[in-house]
Amino acid sequence: MRTKIYFFLYIGALIALSMQKSYEPLIFIFMALFLMLGKSAFVLARRALLLVAFFSFFITLSYSLMLYMQSQPFWNYFLTLNLRSLDMMYLTLLFTARVNIYEALAFSKELSFLLVLSVSKIMTMQRVFADYSDALRSRRVKKPSRDQIYEYLGSAIAGFLDRSIQESKENFEAMKSRGFHV
């Protein structure tokens, strides 16, 4: 029950953050989140920064440049949007670092089970994807042609699809044999 309360608090905090219209409170919120994270603050701050940087900086920089060229103040816009985006991402990282997400989202047995199963498969697929990429890299002497890349992509993606369907059948049989019914 406690984790569910944390989840609703997190949603409420996200909405409150998205309503902020000036950067001053967002600086204090960032500092508060930083302190709450303790030892992992720097690592998560770096991760949050990397996650929001591309889209956020690209959009806000181009708009700020436009305001600057029109001799209009741009700092408020630039800082507010980037800090709001950063704070929201930082809050999400804090939530996922401190709260058991699967427990927090266990509103229905079916969805909770689906989430756990999907995440575990995504982790496995990520490893297989890395193996595929390494295998392709280690087997080529010269740069492959576009046709060769297309052939590889077609078979690799279809291979993943085939693997996904096969695995789901095996999972289903394993679940059934253990008397697991959702």
Partner: peptide, 16 residues
Amino acid sequence: DESFALLSSLSAFSFV
């Protein structure tokens, strides 16, 4: 019956 296993596999497929 197989929906759960298949849904999770297809979601992982989409991720990949």
